Simulated assay, not measured.
Amino acid sequence: MNPQLTEEEMRRALFGAPQPEEQVSAPLVDKPVQEVVLAKPVVAPAAKKKAAKAFTPRLRVTLRVGNEFEGKMTELIHEADTLSSLLAEQDAVKVARKKYKYVEVVSVKSM
């Protein structure tokens, strides 16, 4: 090998001979194609079927309420739409406090 290689000769040895750039021609323009839109056939609306209601969890909270201290107490039943007994109890007490001064929770049962 020749120790006195020029830069151009080194490039040719490493990368090969330079290839001529390809000429890119502009794409041929075709006639515009008309768009075809397919229309859906008109169908008479069918009677809507009511979906079966999904199961909603319910808890029944039984409260003893009254407005007199150590007086007459009445029993009140509140139904809550939740699985959490704590939330059902809090909701029932909140509703009962609007009308009664003294509220005592007796039980929380699922329905």
Rank of each mutant, 00 (worst) to 15 (best):
V43A: 11
T56K: 07
R60K: 11
A54M: 06
R64G: 00
K49M: 08
L63G: 00
V65K: 00
A39P: 07
A80M: 00
K31P: 10
G71H: 07
A92H: 02
E35T: 15
P41T: 11
P27A: 11
M73T: 06
P41W: 09
L38S: 15
K31F: 12
D30I: 09
P32I: 12
K72S: 05
P57S: 05
T56I: 08
V24M: 13
Q34T: 12
A80S: 01
I77N: 05
E70Y: 03
R60N: 04
Q90E: 13
Q34G: 15
A54S: 09
M73C: 02
R58F: 03
E35L: 15
V61L: 03
R64M: 03
A80F: 01
L59Q: 00
V36W: 09
R64I: 02
K50H: 09
E75H: 02
A80P: 00
V95R: 10
R60C: 04
K48H: 08
R58W: 04
M73Y: 06
R58Y: 01
R64H: 07
D30Q: 15
S85L: 04
A51D: 09
T82Y: 02
I77W: 02
T74N: 05
L38G: 15
A54E: 11
A39L: 14
V65A: 05
V95D: 07
E68H: 04
K53N: 04
V37M: 11
P41Y: 09
Q90N: 10
L86F: 07
A80I: 01
R64C: 03
S85V: 01
V43P: 05
A88L: 00
A46S: 15
T74H: 04
V42K: 12
R60A: 06
E68P: 01
A51G: 07
V36L: 14
F69S: 03
E89F: 02
A47S: 06
R64E: 06
G66Y: 03
Q34C: 11
A26D: 15
R60F: 04
A88C: 06
V29D: 15
E68I: 07
V29E: 13
V42A: 14
G71W: 02
A51Q: 08
K94Q: 15
D91W: 02
